[in-house]
């Protein structure tokens, strides 16, 4: 990749497509050019611009962990022009990717602490990258708790991985669906994420929380985290504003003087409160 024209994408081959939930797919992507693969590095929490030639670019996090080498994954919901074009792609097709952009979750600061992951719906993909990154360095962290909720059982993404995490003795997984979203054989919780969090009340001391989901879930979850002992500095989220360039120039993601794409997307709750509420 030419180092100067930052808009030139890497060419990626779709190795595998997984249908996660209605209108939600995961792509496993491999670099077409081996030298691109060997030069590529990213950290958990970073994102990229994925493109279908002729349809345009769309922004998603890298949903796989940097500890899983040789490929990247993205998970997206079919919503607009580009995600529809992506949704219609088949295994073997070539798409564009440029990145990684943005900052990352500060895993090295979390060593020796417990980690609580809270995700809602399609908010799990960015969190999943951090989950695998922590699980692959399992010895460095204390308790790992994952609280994941979706509207319905159907809407839960990464179902195979949820099963895998549920079986692990070193992970505590709580899954929940909104009231009415359960199926007869559903064994998880029923209720909204904030109330399930309150019920579970994992300890906030010497712990960090990673929260990602719909704005309303985040808004209602934060006060509970503070109640159970998390500090504003120990709660992290990743912002998801509309983006085009990824490098702090196109202006779309700007929240005051802060660019989600280059100053974020990862931000702790203390810093988040300094920004105008334009996210």
């Amino acid at each position: 990749m030419n180092s100067q024209n930052i808009y030139l994408p890497y060419k990626m081959r779709i190795e595998k497509i997984t249908e996660e939930a209605p209108m939600v797919k995961t792509f496993k992507l491999a670099f077409v050019n081996p030298e691109d693969e060997s030069n590529f590095e990213f950290k958990t929490g970073q994102f990229g611009e994925y493109s279908v030639f002729g349809a345009g670019e769309s922004t998603f996090c890298i949903a796989s962990s940097p500890t899983h080498k040789g490929y990247i994954e993205c998970t997206f919901r079919k919503a607009g022009k580009v995600t529809t074009a992506l949704y219609n792609c088949e295994e073997g097709d070539i798409i564009g990717f440029r990145g990684p952009y943005g900052n990352n979750f500060p895993l090295e600061d979390w060593e020796g602490k417990s980690v609580l992951f809270i995700a809602g719906g399609i908010g799990l993909p960015p969190v999943r990258s951090v989950i695998w990154n922590c699980l692959d360095l399992r010895d460095k962290f204390k308790d790992i708790t994952i609280l994941y909720g979706a509207k319905t059982v159907q809407d839960l993404v990464y179902k195979n991985e949820l099963e895998e995490w549920a079986k692990r003795p070193d992970v505590k997984l709580i899954t929940t669906v909104d009231p009415g979203g359960e199926t007869p054989d559903w064994k998880g919780e029923v209720g909204f994420v904030p109330s399930i969090l309150k019920k579970a009340s994992p300890k906030g001391e010497n712990a960090v929380a990673i929260v990602c989901g719909p704005p309303i879930m985040i808004k209602l979850t934060l006060p509970i985290l503070l109640e159970i002992g998390f500090t504003e500095e120990s709660i992290f989220t990743t912002l998801e504003n509309r983006m085009k360039c990824g490098i702090g120039q196109c202006g779309h993601c700007a929240v005051g003087p802060y660019y989600v794409c280059k100053d974020g997307p990862v931000i702790n709750y203390a810093d988040l409160q300094l920004l105008p509420v334009e996210y």
Binding site: Y7, S51, V52, F53, G54, A55, G56, E57, R77, A79, G80, T83, E240, N241, R242, K244, C245, Q249, C250, G251, H252, E278
Partner: peptide, 30 residues
Amino acid sequence: FDIQDIGSQFNGSRVRNWDSCAFDLFTKHA
């Protein structure tokens, strides 16, 4: 600016076009 593709899946260009923060769509999420 905005970034758009002009053309088909077979050939075309990726272009950068002027945009404005005055537009509703400028910040609207999917």
